Simulated assay, not measured.
Amino acid sequence: MAGHRIYTVSFASVYPMYVTKAEKKGRAKTDVDEIIRWLTGYSQEELEDQLEKQTDFETFFAEAPGLNPSRALIRGVVCGVRVEDIKEPTMQEIRYLDKLIDELAKGKAVDKILRK
Results as ranks from 00 to 15, higher is better:
E46Q: 15
V14F: 03
Y42N: 10
Y42E: 10
V32G: 05
I35A: 07
N68I: 09
D33K: 14
L73F: 09
I101H: 03
P69S: 11
D102G: 01
E34N: 13
M1L: 08
K29C: 02
G41N: 12
L97M: 12
S10F: 04
I113M: 05
V83A: 03
P16T: 04
L73C: 05
V14E: 03
K106D: 15
T59V: 11
F61V: 09
S13M: 07
K112N: 07
A72N: 14
I36Y: 04
G80V: 13
F57L: 12
Q54N: 14
P16F: 01
G76C: 06
E93V: 00
Q92I: 03
D49C: 00
V19S: 07
A109H: 10
R75Q: 14
K21S: 07
E93T: 08
A72L: 13
I113K: 02
W38S: 06
F60Q: 05
G66F: 03
D49S: 12
P16Q: 05
I74Q: 11
G76T: 10
V19W: 07
K106N: 13
E93N: 13
K24C: 05
R115G: 00
R71S: 10
R27S: 04
V14K: 05
G41E: 13
E46N: 07
T59H: 09
N68L: 08
K108D: 07
E63W: 08
L39P: 06
W38A: 09
S10Y: 05
Y42A: 09
Y18K: 06
V32F: 02
P16Y: 03
Y96W: 09
C79N: 14
A64Q: 12
E45Q: 14
K99I: 06
L47M: 09
R5W: 08
I113Q: 05
Q50S: 08
E88F: 00
F57G: 02
F57I: 11
E103T: 07
M91N: 13
P89L: 01
L100D: 07
A64F: 07
V110C: 00
R27C: 02
I86E: 15
P16C: 02
A22I: 04
E23F: 01
D98N: 12
A2F: 05
F60W: 06
V9F: 06
A22E: 04
S13V: 11
D49H: 10
E103P: 07
D98V: 00
I86V: 15
K53M: 07
Y15C: 01
S70Q: 15
E23M: 14
T55R: 07
A22V: 05
L104R: 06
R75N: 11
R115W: 01
P65T: 14
R75P: 01
Y7L: 14
Y96K: 03
A109G: 06
T59I: 09
T55D: 04
K87G: 10
F57A: 01
K116H: 08
I101L: 05
L67Q: 14
L73V: 02
V32Y: 03
R37T: 12
I36S: 06
D98P: 01
V81M: 11
K112G: 00
E46Y: 00
T8Q: 14
F11N: 05
R82G: 11
R95G: 00
D31W: 01
L114Q: 12
E46S: 09
Y15N: 03
V14M: 05
